Amino acid sequence: MRVAIVTGASSGIGQSAAIQIAKRGVGVVLTYGRNQEGARDTVAAIEKEGGSAVALPLDVGRSETFPAFRDSIEAVLRDTWQRDTFDILVNNAGFGQMAMFEETTEELFDRFMRVLLKGPYFLTQTLLPLLADGGAVVNVTSNAALHSGLEPGYSAYASMKGGLTVLTRYMAKEFSPRGIRVNSIAPGATRTRLADNAFERYPEVIPALAAKTAFGRVGEPDDIGMVIATLVSDEGRWITAQDIEVAGGFNL
């Protein structure tokens, strides 16, 4: 059985990606930060469909914990799937917060950097020896780093997501001798728990975002999760080094 690791899969896009990947007959190791209950829900949803999943805690903003996480991954692979490698890595975990340029603190900037750029960089580096040849990596970026998603208040967040898009291309180049494909996806406004459940706390913003979208609505987690699952499957075998906007025609 092929095995995937999906970070930040206790809700939203990560949860959808984990479930959609599992539906394709892939075992899933999913990670969570503070939302252990949500991680349990993801595991339950996968197991209900006959799949197999294991949830592990991980703070992608603390790179010093990555070697111990790798040890945990090795144990789970061995004990659950009798494997010493895995096949798919989805770097999804992150956070969002709006802050105008002149109001962005160095502390917030550094947190964005640790979680959104340094975390995926060194987590992938740490896990790379366990990633099987012919595998696939998907990095979740944001259309905030693209012209279509350019909005005031996201300069620091988008800078890190833009850096992750560049990193994706370098990973694709350097991993290609092993047949490992690396792509990124750039979601637009999507109904998730990002920014402390902003959509639930400020539902009045939804109509304005929907009006800017060609299809007249905001995105749902499955809109993104299905694309991730397709990219890491055999259907995506000839795609690498691409950043794919998945935003329903935002600002089209």
Rank of each mutant, 00 (worst) to 15 (best):
V232Q: 08
Y202M: 15
A208Y: 08
A211P: 01
S10I: 05
K212R: 15
V218C: 04
P207L: 04
G219I: 00
D79H: 10
A211W: 00
R78A: 15
P67A: 09
S155M: 11
N92W: 07
Y121I: 13
F250Q: 00
A156T: 07
F109G: 03
L252C: 14
A136Q: 02
A156F: 03
I239A: 12
V246C: 03
T190C: 01
W81M: 09
L194G: 01
A17L: 09
D234Q: 15
L130P: 04
V140M: 04
A4S: 13
V29Q: 03
A53L: 11
R193N: 15
G8E: 10
K161N: 08
P221S: 09
F199N: 07
E64C: 07
D41S: 14
A186G: 00
D84V: 12
R181P: 05
A189D: 08
G135Q: 07
P67G: 07
L164A: 02
I224M: 01
T213H: 00
E245P: 10
A53Y: 10
P221D: 08
M160L: 11
A195G: 01
F69D: 11
G27Q: 05
L150H: 14
D71L: 14
A198M: 15
A156V: 09
Q97I: 04
R193Y: 02
L108T: 07
R62W: 03
Q125T: 13
T192I: 12
A136G: 04
Y154E: 11
A45Y: 05
S184P: 05
R193E: 15
S176V: 06
R40S: 13
R193T: 14
V246K: 00
E102Y: 09
I228P: 08
A214W: 01
G216N: 02
R83Y: 10
E37G: 12
M113W: 15
E151D: 13
A75F: 03
M100D: 13
R34P: 05
G8D: 09
T7A: 09
L194M: 15
A18S: 10
L127V: 05
T213C: 00
T192L: 10
V29S: 02
P177I: 08
L252V: 15
D59S: 14
L128V: 04
G8T: 09
F112L: 09
